[in-house]
Amino acid sequence: MAKNKNGSGFSRRKFLKGVGVGTGALSAGLLSPAETLSHAGGALAFGTPQGPGAVPITLHINGQAHRLSVEPRVTLLDALRMDLEITGAKRVCDRGTCGACSMLLDGKVIYGCSMLAIDAQGHEITTVEGLSHNGRPHPLMTAFVAHDGQQCGFCTPGFIVASKAFLDRTPHPTREQVNHGLGGNLCRCGTYHGIREAVLDVGNPTGKAKTGGQAHGAL
């Protein structure tokens, strides 16, 4: 979405941001080098309150450190989407219910909408963008496509990330485990069947768990 086909660097997203009234003027690109360097490597804990205006912070996302300046009230999700243009995680309910904003924090799946960006410092954050390697899709992505695990696709990045965290802990799940393990994500199109099959497929490549509704995978 962010890259225009003609390579002009102009994107729909940047255009929409540009015309927005009251859009925050401070974004990562506008920080002066002095401003970022003076706070780099600072201790995470501090007894002196910061804000309510914009505060320089550092986030570690998909293996890269990003310095940006946000008000303490900005959520991790909004910092990623609005300030860093890492838009894989989606903003839907913004109340920790739908799972579209799912991302990994030190390998554990969380809701990016329910954590403050400033409070996420010191953690390794992984979004759906961070699951591909060298342009190759993660096996879950391939499986979602193969099993028709998406319709409108808006919940898909969250489901992929939640599925990754689930399989990391439960490598060979049963159908029931998948149901429970992905209980934090919603799909309004109702593609649950395809999602379930995709996750079972990646977790049980020999196809054992797919043959019935009962537990097959090794526990």
Binding site: A45, F46, G47, P49, Q50, P52, V55, R73
Partner: peptide
């Protein structure tokens, strides 16, 4: 969400002082 300031103290004693 209304604006607020944020502190992340190291100790319970520090945290209590900020309340």
């Amino acid at each position: 969400m209304q604006a607020f300031d944020y502190a992340r103290p190291h100790s319970l004693a520090e945290a209590l002082k900020l309340l």
